[in-house]
């Protein structure tokens, strides 16, 4: 068995391969569904209905997709430069912490000033968190997979400490939760009375800006070059270390925005269950999008749909909603396989 390089995939293939991966995922998931005693077709229909079958479902899916777009972008940017940021979860929580530190009345400013200030500080917070692992990688060759992954636990425990201590809401009846953000810091709802908020618009804007940076800018070129071949990039005079630092700053900042948008747009305060693994799911989102920032939007909505739909399906059929987790994890594996197949042809000889 040998691998042969293929021509770069065209647009049709860029859609075909993720579609194939998703199809394979459904096939694998249907085995589990059958084992759980339900009909795969019923289950998938109910998932689809739960994700997109009504206005409520669609709004819920887009709301759930919002943090996934941010973490997906964070991962896509980092992975493009082969900086393996597994720590979007931690950066997300840092974004949440910064939001409640500044947004719960500490700063009394009009919304038009307060929001940009908070967003800037959130970006900075997430960026600084990833700077540490990036520095250790560049200076001492410490594997960033390990450092960023472990930082997730450290930061979560740190947030837990804050919520039991200085950030604890005195009016919170003893629950480990922060005070609520003031009205000036809140992201407005897009539709009155519905959960979808302005964070979704920010996510779309972030996706477009990230796409522009990756595709058109000098920095994006440098990041791609470093990601493909750091040796050759260095030979050509590309400052590899600086590029990695810039990548880390961008990636960490994007992930932190997920925390900001969840706190300021949806939850209103910081709790320990702010993220049910949005940071990790961002990896699947990015891979499914083949690291394309615009594709991240589509894949985030898709993944969010699976989660939202699975909840609805589970209530109707009794098949555990964990099937969503299995599907998302399987999708990562099938997608990685599909990406390889899009670049190489297998010759069985």
């Amino acid at each position: 068995m040998r691998l042969e390089a293929k021509k770069a995939p065209g647009l049709a293939q860029a859609i075909l391969y993720p579609a194939g991966a998703i199809f394979a995922t459904l096939v694998i998931a249907s085995v589990l569904v059958t084992l759980a005693g339900a009909s795969p077709f019923d289950v998938f229909y109910l998932v689809l209905k739960g994700a997109a079958g009504s206005q409520f479902a669609i709004i819920e899916t887009l709301t759930r997709a919002t943090p996934l777009i941010f973490t997906g972008l964070a991962v896509a940017v980092a992975f493009r430069a082969k900086l393996w940021n597994i720590g979007a979860e931690a950066q997300l929580y840092v974004g949440g912490v910064v939001t409640v530190v500044l947004g719960t009345g500490t700063l009394q400013l009009p919304a038009a000033i307060l929001m940009p200030v908070i967003i800037a500080c959130v970006l900075l917070g997430g960026a600084l968190l990833l700077l540490g692992p990036a520095f250790l990688k560049i200076r001492f060759g410490v594997d960033e997979v390990v450092t960023t992954l472990l930082l997730n636990f450290i930061v979560l425990l740190f947030v837990s400490m804050l919520l039991e201590g200085v950030l604890k809401d005195p009016m919170g009846l003893g629950w480990p939760q922060s005070k609520r953000v003031i009205a000036e810091a809140q992201l407005p709802r897009l539709i009155t009375g519905k959960r979808l908020h302005f964070g979704f618009v920010l996510a779309l804007a972030a996706a477009f800006i990230t796409w522009f940076i990756m595709k058109k800018s000098v920095l994006g070129y440098e990041m791609r070059a470093v990601g493909h071949n750091p040796e050759a990039a260095g030979f050509a005079g590309i400052p590899v270390r600086k590029v990695l630092i810039k990548t880390a700053l961008l990636s960490g900042g994007l992930a932190a925005l997920a925390g900001y948008s969840e706190v300021a747009g949806l939850k209103g305060n910081l709790t320990l269950d702010l993220s049910p693994g949005f940071g990790y799911t961002g990896i699947v989102v990015a891979m499914l999008a083949m690291l394309n920032p615009l594709g991240v939007v589509a894949s985030a909505i898709f993944i969010a749909g699976i989660f939202v739909g699975a909840d609805a399906m589970s209530r109707a059929t009794g098949v555990p909603s964990y099937i969503a987790q299995v599907m998302v994890a399987t999708a990562l594996l099938t997608m990685v396989t599909a990406i390889m197949l899009s670049r190489y042809r297998i010759r069985w000889r």
Binding site: R224, A232, F235, A236
Partner: peptide, 21 residues
């Protein structure tokens, strides 16, 4: 292959690599 060219980038991206900025 190792340092002269970035195999997975296209010809345009490769020829400008020493003067892209």
């Amino acid at each position: 292959h190792a340092i002269g060219m970035i195999d997975d980038m296209n010809i345009v991206e490769n020829v400008i690599s020493e003067a892209y900025a």
